[in-house]
Amino acid sequence: MTTQPYLKFEQIGMSFRRGQMATEVLRDVNLRIERGEFVSMIGHSGCGKSTLLNILGGLLKSTNGEVFLEGKVVDEPGPDRAIVFQNHSLLPWLTVYGNIAIAVDKVFGGSRGKGKTKAERHDWVMHNLELVQMAQAKDKRPHEVSGGMKQRVGIARALAMQPKVLLMDEPFGALDALTRAHLQDSVMEIHARLGNTVLMITHDVDEAVLLSDRVVMMTNGPAATIGEILPIKLARPRRRLELATDAEYARCRAAVLEFLYARHRVPARAA
């Protein structure tokens, strides 16, 4: 046995049972992720990407196999695996500040190991709001800010928990293209600054190649598994304008497209 990886999926299998019908969604998924890595997972709808993320998040229990984070089995949700949800999932009755404070107060409140005083917690909330450039809107309620801003708050809430691994479930899927590009830049900048370990699910080939160190490509369900893993050897910081004409970028992009649309095309129904 070699050195213990930071995050390890081992023989993950998942079946959903409804009455007599069992649907196998995932089979034999094995993946190792190192500390500080940015990994994207891409695949067609229904290939079980979200299921895999929810298993890592502890929101679902896999039927086979285990997930290990720093050598420990993952079996329940927790702030060390904070999730950025696709639809932001902000609590509408709390302000932007309150939405982050509820997490910070719970994770860092009290006198346990990570305990912070009230003032420290306030500073930490503000620090994370500034990180996503939302400090000026701290007293607004979610319905008073735009979709992109909501997602910024969702990211800040997840970052504020200082997770060991940050899970992002199609974080920009519901946003328009310009806002999406803007947020991708923010995420790249934050990742460069904090060095988080990130697992992101996406549908967007450009997004996957632009942001990731590795792109994990899933085969189609049922019984989906990892088809191929593509390392993206582009220097950081990456700038989208320069990459538009970069040969390596074009090659990676073509490889992902080829996987998705030539080898693992969705059967006719999707067309």
């Binding site: 949700p77 904070a82 999730i83 639809n87």
Partner: peptide
């Protein structure tokens, strides 16, 4: 979603 948020922050 709200239940998930509650679960993640325990």
């Amino acid at each position: 979603d709200y239940r998930n948020v509650a679960a993640v922050i325990r």
